[in-house]
Simulated assay, not measured.
Amino acid sequence: MKVQNKVVVVTGGGNGMGRELVLALLSKGASVAAVDINASALEETLALAGKNRDRLATYTLNITDRALVDALPDQVISRFGAVDGIINNAGIIQPFVRLKDLDYAAIERVINVNLFGTLYMTKAFLPHLLARPEAHITNISSMGGFLPVPGQTIYGAAKAAVKLLTEGLSSELLGTNVKVTVVFPGAIGTNIVVNSGVKMDLQQENRRDGPTPKVLAPGKAAQIILEGIENDRYRVMVGSDARLMDAIYRLNPQRAARFIYNQMSALLPK
């Protein structure tokens, strides 16, 4: 789906990759509804939109609140007259601890935001998307959604669920006007750690074995994702690390898991 003159909803639009997606969509001539739980972050996105701000509407919303999400499509349609696409980008990571040390409050929060937030948005907007001449749903999974990362087991489980949710939805929508894309970002230079309320031990970070992983700029990640949307791609790998680990995992899942363990295990508390 070409995004010019389309109306696209982006969750997590207040910062990081979500903000870059909003700005890139605007630059391509789309109108955008940016959704985020952080009102001040949305104000910053609005300011950065510059001359395109007349095509940007912001909605301060917790996507884990199903009632608020259910009311959102009417608000967006009231503002723009229609909705043609959604990008479910909002997500948080968990504290870098083993499952045995992760409390249920953190478990539920990670699953609610990453999985149920995506599900609620998809369910709320799908009837409206099906009514459009063409439409698109994009769900952001993660490299951690197909590759186990120690200390991010629940995050990975939620993102793996997003992967299968998206792929199942794609199959259900075959023959309709709605295309579906699942995205697997690798390491992106965002503030997801801070925005997730996760504290990092710098001494543990410095003990990480091997070279420091290269991170992709959020703006470049947004460009890759939008290219995938405009070409109706089934899946999009974002970053050389995601592409490499996808290839290794397909050939030897256990080897891939051990490689990531060696890279990431230093982040776990002793």
Rank of each mutant, 00 (worst) to 15 (best):
S170V: 08
N15Q: 14
G16Y: 02
A158K: 09
I260Q: 09
A266L: 09
L126C: 05
D101W: 11
P133M: 11
G117F: 14
T58Y: 13
R79N: 00
A34Q: 00
N139E: 03
L46D: 03
I260S: 09
T138S: 15
I192L: 14
G219D: 12
A247T: 15
N191D: 15
F96E: 10
H128P: 11
D241K: 01
T212R: 13
V76R: 09
S78H: 03
V7K: 11
P253W: 04
V3D: 05
R250M: 09
S31R: 12
G156I: 04
H128W: 04
L48M: 14
T153K: 05
V162E: 04
N88C: 13
K179W: 03
A247P: 11
P148Y: 05
A257E: 14
T138D: 01
G168F: 02
G156K: 03
V3S: 00
Y261T: 09
V198A: 14
E43N: 07
A30V: 04
T118R: 10
V35M: 08
G186D: 01
H128T: 12
S240C: 01
K51S: 10
R55Q: 04
V182K: 08
I188D: 00
G156D: 06
I225C: 02
L61K: 08
I260W: 07
G175Y: 03
V198Y: 10
T153D: 07
L268Q: 01
R19S: 06
A124C: 11
L72K: 02
R66S: 00
D246E: 13
P185I: 05
P269Q: 09
I87W: 07
G85L: 12
N62E: 02
L68V: 03
G210H: 13
I93D: 12
R109P: 01
N252T: 10
K159E: 07
G197K: 11
N112T: 08
N114A: 01
M245D: 02
I111F: 12
M264F: 15
N5Q: 14
A47Y: 08
I37G: 05
V8C: 02
V194F: 15
A157E: 09
Q94D: 04
L25G: 04
D70A: 14
S27A: 15
A67N: 10
R66K: 15
N195L: 13
L226S: 01
I154E: 04
I93K: 04
N231Y: 12
L174V: 12
V198E: 04
R255Q: 08
E230H: 02
N262V: 00
A106G: 02
D232Q: 07
V236H: 01
T60R: 14
